[in-house]
Structures are given as structure tokens and as C-alpha cells.
Amino acid sequence: MSDSKRVALVTGGVQGLGAASARALRQAGFTVAATHLGGGDTARAFGEETGIPVYEWDVADFDACRDGVARVEEDLGPVDVLVNNAGVNRDAMFHKMSREAWDQVIAVDLGSMFNMCRQVIEGMRERGYGRIVNVSSVNAARGQAGQTNYCAAKAGIEGFTRALARETAKKGITVNAIAPGYADTAMVEKVPDKIMENILENVPKGRLAEPEEIGRAVVYLSGEGADFVTGTTMNVSGGFRMG
């Protein structure tokens, strides 16, 4: 089966890097679905603009993921490609971080790996094909003050990716992560100018990533051409992760 016949599901896929990934997959010929939670007008506008079916559920809720994936597969067919992009950040210095801020980030950013992959992995194994792409972060390796919860979750994603890749490689399933650097998205726009200036000084490319550049990496790892690539973390950070 060619990529153009494959069904790809992108969580958190109506804005930011998720939207760029969903658009790129659509342009590459995949049948794409995107999820959101509370996206409101943004989600509706994305669906109308792109023609990509949009579904709403909480990726931190196992039962919601089970029911949501079932709806997608009923509408579009079995999920061949899962892009785990949904995430939140609740930044605070650790000595001021609340337990709620810790739990929210771990549940959404890391817990969703289990909640979503568990819904598709058996079908992928039965069909002998699958692509799972998990969105990590450059800060999983570098660390970032004020983000102990986020960095812990993203580092966990990379360990999860390697372990699941080992389990599934002989079943025709690849599992990879992407570690984006700072990209030109609404989330990054909230970073104070002085902090962003310091970050960019340490990015060899000297600029933010364009969301489309992350989308192209997702397409590569989702396609037939990446059949021998599994258990990796692709660094898409303009060199920021080197130092």
C-alpha cells in the first residue's frame, strides 16, 4: 500500500507544530485526522480550511482515547500512522511548582503516549505495518530552568520511543521521536524577548524553526522511505541540541 492510502492521526493537530504536521501529511497524500481539546474556533477554522476531519478528546484520558480512535477508524479506516504531538506546558521554578502543574504536564505530555499508542498498537501488529512519531523537545536533552515537569515528560517520551521500537521492529512498525527546537509558533511567542535572544545566540542556524520544517520531518518518518529508521530521536533544532 502506498503512503497515499494510509490513514494518519495527529493529536493536537489544529494549531502550531501539530497543524503544520497535519497539513504536510495531507499534502503528501495521506488521509489525515486531527485531534484537539477545547480548540473552539481555531479547530473549526482549521477543519474548514484544510478539509481535514477534526475530533475532540482529552489525550490524558485513556477511555476518551479509546472511544476517539474508534470513531476515527470507523470514519476513515485503520490508523496506520500516529503522530503524538499533543502537549501542554505549565512552567514554574521547581521550588514554586504546584503538584497540579506537575501532574497536568506528565498526564498530557507523557501519559498520552500510553493512552494513544495502546489504542492502535494491536491493529498495527496484526496488519504488519505502522508508523508512530512522538514529538519530544530539544529540552529533553538540554534541560531548561522552570520546566522540570516538561523536560521530565519529554525525556520520558524518548525512552518510551526506544523501548516500543524494540518491541515492534519485527512487526513492520517503526517508532521514532522528533525533538524540535524553538519554532515560530504562538507558544514560543510568549517567551520573553531577553530569554529568546539568549536562546537564539546558542542556535547555530541563528533563527527559529518554521513549523513546516518540523512537518516535513514528520512526513519523512511517517512514510515508506523511513522503513529502516526506528528507535531514533530526530533532532530538528538548527543545531541547538548539540551544545
Rank of each mutant, 00 (worst) to 15 (best):
D3R: 07
S4C: 00
R6V: 14
A8D: 06
G13K: 00
G13Q: 06
V14K: 00
G18W: 03
A19W: 03
L25K: 01
R26N: 07
A33M: 08
A34L: 04
T35I: 05
H36A: 10
L37Y: 06
D41E: 11
G47Y: 03
G47N: 03
E49D: 12
T50F: 09
T50L: 09
I52T: 10
V54M: 05
D58L: 00
R66H: 07
E73D: 04
E74M: 02
D75F: 04
L76F: 01
D80K: 04
V81I: 01
V81K: 02
V81C: 02
L82K: 06
V83P: 01
N85I: 01
G87N: 00
V88S: 00
A92Q: 13
M97L: 14
R99T: 15
E100H: 14
W102R: 05
G111D: 14
F114V: 09
F114A: 03
C117Q: 07
Q119W: 00
E122K: 07
E126T: 15
G130E: 05
V133E: 06
N134H: 12
A140Q: 11
A140R: 00
R142C: 05
G143K: 10
Q144A: 13
A145Y: 08
G146L: 09
Q147P: 11
A153N: 01
K154V: 10
I157Y: 10
I157N: 08
I157A: 01
R162T: 04
A169E: 11
K170C: 03
K170Y: 08
K170T: 14
K170D: 15
K171A: 15
K171R: 05
T174K: 06
V175T: 10
A179F: 04
Y182L: 14
A183H: 14
P192V: 04
I195W: 02
I195N: 06
N198G: 11
N198S: 15
I199S: 04
E201Q: 13
N202V: 13
P204V: 10
G206R: 07
R207T: 03
A209H: 08
R216H: 10
A217M: 15
V219E: 11
V219N: 03
Y220C: 13
G223L: 10
D227F: 01
V229I: 14
T230Q: 03
N235D: 09
N235K: 08
F240L: 11
